[in-house]
Nucleic acid binder design. Structure first.
Length: 477
DNA sequence: TGAAATGTTGGGGCG
DNA sequence: ACGCCCCAACATTTC
């Protein structure tokens, strides 16, 4: 075991362990780049330890994606002459063991910012350092570190617009690193698990729709970015709200798993002056991490405390109907079915289905957060928390409680031809577009589509009830 | 990153 | 020609 001989002036040839987490790439990979720069052998590893992220261990769709992504990373590391050492946790003892087996003198990784992970990583860093190892963590997941931005009172921001202004004043995020080369392998590779042994894939193969939709991995992400930055990014502003067209980059899962870095996206898109509205969305991602970092309880608790007293309903049947896309509101059902089939949902539609769950059904936003967590391939604790608290009106910069989406109006506005609805609710494919935007008037069995349900709530009534419930919050002391 | 209710304005029909 | 009403279009307020 190394005893930190790097410090005593003798040329250190002990390996550097690069602990991959959600930075499954070789481009703009600060930890890997730093390890390569030491000139010492590099041992890349990934440790599967989902319990350490409880209660937000990766969901089923995320695990499917992770499996593919690890496979791709193994391949690209192989082209660099390296192997990805797969192990199963607990992380600390696994890393200690790997260090012992290989005689490594250093462990490098890129930082993550979820509260449970920060806590774990601090402990791991302290313990490894006490054992005499050189431990370094690097910024690479966000455009800016969550603590790099604060308001005049030296407090974290809670409103996006001033946060965005502060980000703009910081100027460009630092330049991405290019892929390192000439990395030394260790003299002998330690044992590793086979990817299949991590059991990331579902027992029953329900992932067909995911396979048909996605190309996980760094190469696919870079290709998607190049295509997007070439021209679609310029019409993002006009097209991003229409779920029936491909108006967004669809990079969210790759960003979550770090198959591509936010800085790389930023610098690639900046070539195009019309990219600002898109890059603004990338700053929303930083904002979500900023909030979760500074308000670590918000993945479980509303940021605005009065919402602890909100009379949420508890109705497992309603929750199930929403989850399965059987609400009787075509735009809502289309979204929920797209999610189930592909592990992803257009952001405009995420807002619509979220508003429907928390306002029309008055079910707890955490129920929605948990469903999204299990089914989204891009499930991300910071973004998911921000999104659901925003929709419920209980978060930072949240939609006011009285802002209630009318599903019929939303679909009329954002899916006028019904392209999106018809794709995901095929039993309505024969209907005239206009009819799709009037849920209550849709003919139902036996005259209409035999299997399509009638609306589970009357939006007008549900809206009034929600307003009444939300108004009570303001009466509270 | 709402929607509905309410208010205002102005054109045009009509007695 | 004029006042009145209607109502669409737009603006503002309220939830």
């Amino acid at each position: 075991m190394s005893d930190g001989s790097a410090m005593n002036g003798i040329h250190d040839t002990s390996p550097v362990v690069v602990w991959f987490r959600r930075d499954l790439r070789v481009d703009d990979q600060p930890a890997l780049t730093a390890a390569a720069a030491t000139g010492r052998p590099v041992i890349p590893c990934f440790v599967w330890a989902p319990d350490e992220e409880a209660p937000w261990a990766p969901g089923a769709a995320s695990r499917w994606w992770l499996h593919q992504s690890l496979e791709q990373l193994s391949r690209s590391l192989a082209t660099l002459g390296l192997r990805l050492i797969l192990r199963s946790g607990p992380t600390l003892t696994t890393l200690q063991q790997l260090v012992q087996e290989t005689g490594a003198g250093a462990v490098y990784w890129n930082r993550l910012y979820e509260p449970a992970i920060v806590r774990r990583d601090k402990g791991i860093k302290a313990t490894l350092q006490q054992a005499g190892l050189e431990v370094q963590s690097f910024p690479g997941h966000l455009l800016h570190e969550p603590w790099a931005i604060e308001n005049q009172q030296a407090r974290p921001y809670q409103v996006f617009t001033p946060f965005y202004r502060a980000v703009q004043e910081l100027g460009s995020p630092s330049t991405p690193y290019s892929q390192p080369s000439g990395i030394l392998p260790p003299s002998r590779w330690p044992v590793r698990l086979e990817l299949g042994e991590l059991n990331l894939l579902p027992q029953i193969d329900w992932a067909g729709g995911l396979r048909d939709t996605w190309t996980p991995g760094e190469a696919g992400a870079i290709e998607a970015l190049e295509t997007f930055a070439d021209s679609p990014v310029a019409v993002y502003k006009e097209q991003r709200d229409f779920p029936g067209v491909q108006g967004t980059s669809r990079l969210s899962p790759a960003l979550h798993f770090g198959e591509i870095s936010a800085r790389r996206i930023w610098h690639t898109c900046r070539r195009n002056p019309a990219a600002e509205p898109y890059l603004r969305q990338l700053v929303w991602r930083d904002f979500a991490h900023h909030l979760l970092y500074h308000f670590p309880h918000t993945s479980e608790q509303p940021l605005r405390e009065e919402f602890n007293h909100f009379p949420w309903r508890a109705d497992t049947r309603d929750l199930r109907d929403w989850s399965r896309g059987q609400t009787g509101y075509p735009i809502v059902d289309a979204g929920m079915r797209e999610l189930w089939a592909t592990g992803w949902m257009h952001n405009r539609v995420r807002m619509i289905v979220a508003s429907f769950l928390v306002k029309d059904l008055r079910l707890h936003w955490m129920e929605g957060a948990r469903w999204f967590w299990d089914t989204l391939v891009d499930a991300d604790l910071a973004n998911n928390t921000l999104g659901w608290q925003w929709a419920a009106g209980c978060g930072a910069d949240a939609a006011p409680y009285f802002r209630i989406f009318n599903p019929d109006l939303q679909s009329r506005k954002f899916d006028p031809e019904g392209r999106y609805i018809k794709r995901w609710v095929p039993e309505l494919a024969g209907m005239a577009p206009k009819a799709l935007h009037d849920a209550a008037a849709l003919p139902h069995a036996p005259d209409g589509p035999a299997t399509y349900p009638s609306p589970m709530v009357d939006h007008r009534k549900a809206r009034d009830e929600a307003l009444t419930a939300f108004a009570q919050l303001r009466q509270l002391p």
